[in-house]
Amino acid sequence: MSPDTRRTFLLDGREIPFREGQTVFDAAMAAGVYIPHLCHNPDFEPHSSCRLCTVIVNGRPFASCTQPAVAGQDVKSDTAELNEMRRSLTQMLLVEGNHYCPSCEKSGGCRLQATAYALGLQDNHFPQFFPLRDVDASHPDIILDRDRCILCGLCVRISRTVDRKNVFAMTGRGIDTTIVVDSPTGLLADSRVSREDEAVQHCPVGALMMKGEAFTVPIGERPYDRAPINEDSVAQFQAREARLHG
């Protein structure tokens, strides 16, 4: 067989099968190999902005969530160097916002926190930015706490493509980038958002949360108390694969 019809590639020395059109990320997760990621949710279009899923493909770095799988390519992911970079990226996300885990309702179910655990992060390393960001608690059902936002853009993308409401957008540039809400006042209460919106269901951190649902799950039984994110992500991805392509 010629290399082009093998339809596998090497990931850290292991052969990974893939379907036509699959990304390196999708193929790896389907095969049970976790690649750390934050801005990507397999149910939505990838965005490649958090850069945690960076892998080395044939010697060059690429974001695996947007990199098409190609037969025979050599991919490195679980290396000391890449994991160190992933730790640094996670630390960057932690210092650019204000993440008070001890008082955060998302703690235990937060992908940023759980990813930090999976990477063995014990400190934030960089100086804290302590930015001044607005909290929007105007809406009866939903709260937007920008302190916790990691600018993954999931709410922007989902509100546009799934809810078709375009409630969220980004403004500012560089380190001053922030989420804005589409309404006459800029407040959630005056926007078209509602608690049924997909956009408010998939925030990986505690930036967009439902009111009245905080601390309902006791410590020890929260999502990432039960299984670490590396196991949980792979299990969910594989269940999704079985559902869609089973």
Partner: peptide
Amino acid sequence: ECAVTGGIPSMRNH
């Protein structure tokens, strides 16, 4: 947390 990140007391930094 307070020693490692500033923690809850650093909420005054707002």
